[in-house]
């Protein structure tokens, strides 16, 4: 089992990088040292009426500075609470959690949709190969410059305000992009379409899934997804997204 820590992190800085999308750098004792792309942390609310920790992906890691970056969207009361925190304040964090993306030296296609984009940033920074990055947004874009520093970036917006009008797969078709490996994170309809595309083209594909979590560490069995084969831990066709995931080989999971 991967090593994980429960600690008080300190907020180095926080800013709103797009409407209701926040970027937060946290100083951690241990988590930054161990964090891998595609892993996540859970954040604990101070408000005692909110008992469950919020899972948020690791967007960037600065191991030298012992810090991690999280990029999150205000989705409800918990994330709204975090957005009100200031530099210097403490925040309880557990992590790093989950498995993360495997890093292969093959021509890669990275597909990120909306708030699924952040975890791909650390991955693209660590991948040592030809990289094509497709980012899909509803309208407003974020993190684009950071990705552009790491490879060729294509953009899709639903309203056509920037790049291709449509979704990430529309870009792949329009530009005729090909790859030996796909890494994807985004909303479920996008991941289903990516899986279908990957199966059609016989491309090895890794997708990151989301589910409601309680413990975040594999104890409660709240966060499972359906797997195609019997899982080695659960002994049924269920995999724990927080532990065996959140990143899965697309063909291992039934989505």
């Amino acid at each position: 089992m991967t090593e994980k820590f429960y600690e008080d992190a300190i907020i180095i800085r926080q800013e709103e990088i797009a409407t209701n999308i926040y970027s937060m750098w946290l100083h951690t004792e241990q988590i930054a040292r161990l964090a891998k792309p595609g892993q996540f942390v859970t954040l604990y609310c101070r408000d005692g009426s909110r008992l469950l920790p919020r899972p948020i992906s690791i967007c960037e890691v600065d191991r030298g500075d012992c810090s991690i970056r999280l990029v999150y969207r205000i989705a409800g009361a918990g994330t709204a609470e975090f957005s009100r925190y200031h530099t210097g304040e403490q925040l309880r964090v557990m992590g790093p959690l989950g498995n993360g993306y495997p890093k292969k030296s093959r021509k890669a296609l990275l597909l990120g949709g909306g708030i699924g984009i952040p975890p791909l940033l650390q991955l693209v920074k660590e991948l040592n190969c030809e990289k094509q990055i497709v980012l899909g947004f509803r309208d407003e874009c974020f993190l684009v410059e950071e990705f552009e520093a790491c490879g060729k970036v294509y953009i899709a917006t639903e309203d056509g305000s920037r790049g291709t009008k449509g979704n990430v797969l529309d870009v792949v078709t329009e530009k005729g992009l090909d790859a030996e490996i796909i890494y994807a994170c985004g909303p479920m309809p996008m991941l289903r379409a990516v899986k279908q595309f990957a199966v059609q083209h016989g491309i090895q594909t890794w997708i990151s899934l989301e589910e409601r979590m309680a413990c975040g560490v594999g104890a409660c069995l709240g966060c499972v997804c359906k797997s195609t084969k019997k899982d080695a831990h659960t002994h049924v066709k269920n995999k724990r997204i927080c532990t065996e995931g959140p990143v899965f080989r697309a063909r291992e999971v039934d989505i």
């Binding site: 409601r212 709240g222 049924v236």
Partner: peptide, 13 residues
């Protein structure tokens, strides 16, 4: 014997 449990979502705060 092993049990598969219920479909998700299984958790709500």
């Amino acid at each position: 014997v092993p049990w598969e449990g219920n479909p998700t979502p299984r958790i709500a705060e």
